[in-house]
Computed example of a mutant assay.
Amino acid sequence: MFVVALGGLVWTGVVAVGADSSVASVFASGIISGVVTLVTIAVSINQLVLSRVFGSPGKLSDRLDGSRDLRERVERLADQPSSPNDPAAFLSLLSTTLSERATAALSGIEQSATDSPAEIADALTDVAEYGRSINTQVEDETPITDILGIIVGSEYAMNIAAVRHLRNEYGESLSATTRAEMEALDELLESVAVVRQFYKTLALQQDLAILSRHLIYTGLTALFVSISMALVYRTETVMIPSSTLVILVPVAVGVVVSPIALFSAYILRAATVAYRTVSVGPFVPPGGR
């Protein structure tokens, strides 16, 4: 967009790029200092990512224990000896178990001799459909950022509130088997909430690590282009034909602006993810849906 916009201004004569223009001072002063600042930002981002990776043995053990507890809970509820290491496959197992347990609870209510309120059937149907919708969108080895996009909404929180309401309101009138299924649904939905936040952490860490690398690559390239463009100009003259400058200057500005565009794209995505996943529990702030 920068290249096209600036190229249009140059071709229409609104912006001058000839020997008597201020292109050399622009490339030599402000742009170079701005590029150096971006490289410094890349180093800071890299330090932020590394600070999340490092830790004492005690903290690292706590993280490992927390991950094991989550996996063991899902394995127990899914009646599986182990759970997949792939994040997409793990979420698929979790969502499949959620759908199956909700369907089992719904079948138990329908087979019960007592008449159950329609609210229970509607809520369990919604939970089962929520699990199926996640599972249909997840494929093995799906990138973590795409997985996060599937569970970024607030449906999990509404389902947690609905299941909790059913347990508190109608728990005494339900059979023991149905109450056990309700407890399992509550645990599974809590696991979705934890997985949602954990995947967000992984996705943002990966994005920031990739961003820091790309900022270094594009920043050094932009620095080289800025210095080269500043040295092309001499006092009242330029070392290349004026007809070439009409194309070269917009392209050079595009190269120089590319680190800023890259930084803006990644930060906007990280800010959007953080905004949509600010809640870890059943509370959903206004606008967080």
Rank of each mutant, 00 (worst) to 15 (best):
A5R: 11
L6V: 15
L6Q: 00
G7Q: 03
G8R: 01
G8A: 03
L9E: 02
L9Q: 07
T12Q: 09
G13T: 02
G13L: 03
G18S: 01
D20N: 12
D20G: 07
S22M: 13
S25K: 07
F27S: 09
G30C: 11
I32D: 13
G34E: 10
V36D: 11
L38C: 14
T40V: 15
I41Q: 11
A42L: 08
A42F: 04
S44H: 11
V49A: 12
L50P: 09
L50I: 10
S51P: 12
G55K: 00
G55L: 02
S56R: 00
G58D: 08
L60K: 08
S61I: 04
D62C: 07
R63S: 01
L64I: 10
L64P: 05
G66L: 07
S67M: 07
S67L: 12
R71Y: 02
E72S: 13
D79E: 10
D79W: 11
P84V: 09
N85F: 07
A89M: 08
L93C: 01
L94V: 00
T96V: 12
T97K: 01
E100T: 10
R101F: 05
A102N: 03
A104E: 02
P117K: 00
P117N: 01
I120G: 01
L124W: 01
T125D: 11
V127R: 00
V127L: 04
G131K: 01
G131I: 00
R132D: 10
S133A: 13
I134T: 02
I134N: 01
T136H: 10
D140P: 15
E141C: 10
T142Q: 15
T142K: 13
I144Y: 08
I144T: 14
T145E: 13
D146G: 09
I147A: 05
I147Y: 05
L148C: 06
I150F: 05
G153S: 13
S154H: 05
E155F: 03
A157V: 02
N159Q: 07
I160W: 00
R164Q: 08
H165W: 01
R167N: 04
S173V: 15
L174T: 08
A176R: 09
T178D: 02
T178L: 07
L185W: 00
D186L: 07
L189A: 00
S191E: 00
A193L: 03
A193D: 06
V194E: 03
V195K: 01
Q197W: 02
Q197K: 01
Q197R: 03
F198A: 04
K200T: 05
T201M: 03
A203I: 04
D207G: 14
L208R: 03
I210T: 14
I210H: 10
L211C: 06
S212P: 11
L215N: 03
I216S: 12
T218N: 15
T218R: 15
T221H: 11
V225F: 11
I227Q: 05
S228T: 14
L231D: 13
Y233R: 06
T235L: 13
T235N: 14
P241I: 10
T244P: 09
I247K: 02
I247M: 13
P250N: 08
G254L: 14
V257S: 12
P259Q: 03
P259W: 09
I260A: 15
A261T: 12
L262A: 07
F263I: 06
Y266F: 12
Y266H: 11
L268S: 13
A270F: 04
A271T: 09
V273Q: 05
V280R: 02
V280P: 10
G281F: 05
F283E: 04
V284Y: 06
P286L: 02
G287H: 05
